[in-house]
């Protein structure tokens, strides 16, 4: 696998904004993950080459941050907040509801590859708990109806 010219151009553009090549690493990993959905060993090696840093440094960073995936994930990602303010307003119940509905536990992907379900630590929306981040959108004051509609939409996509 090699990055397309288009992706390489975008990476160069990102690099031009930063003081050092390494400081472009996190923005570049976001960009590569947007393209492929996750960060394979090959992609990490290619990023290392473009940024002139050791591949181990790229892998080190990619595995430190929870939003970078070094294994394939589903087409859609559900991040359900589990931390105290959400837990006090039913996050554990929501987790069981979603788990039962999808037939998977947190950390797993549905067999059709559509949805990966993760627990998240505090999503900074404690006033509208329980909440979850689904791809790029936050869903607040979760109810069964909201969850049902959303999962139906994700499955159909």
């Amino acid at each position: 696998m090699a990055f397309s010219e288009d992706l390489k151009e975008r990476i160069k553009k990102i690099m031009s904004k930063y003081e050092t090549k390494q400081s472009a690493l996190i923005p570049v990993l976001h960009e590569v993950q947007r393209e492929y959905g996750w960060l394979s060993l090959d992609s990490m090696k290619e990023v290392a080459e473009l940024l002139s840093i050791p591949p181990a440094d790229v892998q080190n960073v990619a595995t430190f941050y929870t939003m970078f995936f070094t294994k394939p994930v589903g087409k859609h990602i559900i991040w359900l907040c589990r931390t105290l303010p959400c837990a006090l307003r039913g996050a554990q119940q929501v987790e069981h509801y979603i788990s039962e509905k999808l037939g998977i536990k947190p950390g797993e992907t549905t067999p059709d590859g559509k949805i990966t379900f993760f627990e998240a630590e505090c999503l900074a929306s404690c006033g509208t708990a329980p909440v979850m981040l689904v791809d790029d959108e936050l869903y607040e004051n979760l109810t069964r109806k909201k969850i049902d509609e959303l999962i139906e939409k994700l499955r159909a996509d």
């Binding site: 837990a87 307003r89 039913g90 554990q92 119940q93 004051n141 109810t143």
Partner: peptide, 8 residues
């Protein structure tokens, strides 16, 4: 569960 879900 440790909290109450408004739904229940």
């Amino acid at each position: 569960y440790m909290g109450v879900w408004e739904e229940d």
